[in-house]
Structure formats: C-alpha cells, structure tokens
Amino acid sequence: MKRTFALTTLTAALTLVGATAFADGHIDNAIKARQAQMQLYAFSLGTLGAMAKGDMDYDAAAASAAADNLAAVTMLHPGAFWPQGSDSASNDKSRAKADMWANYPDVQAKGMALGEAAAAMKAAAGTDLAALRGAIGAVGGACGACHKAYREPAN
C-alpha cells in the first residue's frame, strides 16, 4: 500500500515536472517566435524607411518586395505566438504586459490596424517615393499604438 502510494506520488511528481518543462519550453518558444515576427517587420521596414529617410535611393522593385513581405507577415495567425502565461509578469523574456490578455478585443483591433496600414503600404510602395512616404507614417502609428499600451519599458 505504502509502495503504491509512493509510486503514485513519484509518477505524479514526474508528470508535473514534465508538464512544467514542456510548458516552459513551449512558452519560451512562442516568445521567440513572436519576437522573430517583429524582426521580420523591422527588416522590411529597414528598406522602406531607409528610402523614406533618404538614406537609400528609391527603387520601386525593392520597395515593393519589402512592402509585400511586410504585409505577408501581418497575415500570420497570432494565437499560437501569444499563449497565456507569456506576459512580462510570468516570463522575464517577455515585455508584453498582462493587460494584453485582459483586453483582447482592443489588441485585435490594433492588430487589424497594422494589417490595414501594411496593405496600404503594399499598394503604395511601388508607385513612387512620395506614396511610400505617405504610407509609412500609418505603419509607424500602428506599431506605436500597440507598443504604447502593451509593452513594458526596456531595461
């Protein structure tokens, strides 16, 4: 009886450890994945922004390709990147405020706004430099709207 109990306890304990280890790895990976998504945004915006700033000559083909990629990355399904427990209070690799999970409709609306701004950029980037410049402010505004409300300050 005693042995069965000990065995059960051990099994339960191991299962718990296993589950925790899986959950931790899973959450860390999700945080890495969404940060990689942000990197992809930044990389495409680097091309578009360099042209807007005048650091790089305007090139319609390169601008279109960057804007296409930017818009494509906004189309990824977000759910798996943002699991419960991946907020800054639960995981020190994350700067996402727990408020995000409490305000899902607002987060969704801000995500949609980014999608629309990126789609407008996709339509504008290949036209000319003025059109590109006109579209990039809204993209920056959409990035900033979410970072304003839901990102913790950097250390």
Binding site: M38, Y41, A42, F43, L45, G46, G49, G140, C143, G144, H147, K148, R151, E152, P153
Partner: peptide, 8 residues
C-alpha cells in the same frame, strides 16, 4: 533599427 517607440 526599426523598432518603434513604446510606452509613454
């Protein structure tokens, strides 16, 4: 590096 301003 095309991060964006956040918070305040």
């Amino acid at each position: 590096d095309f991060d964006s301003a956040g918070g305040h």
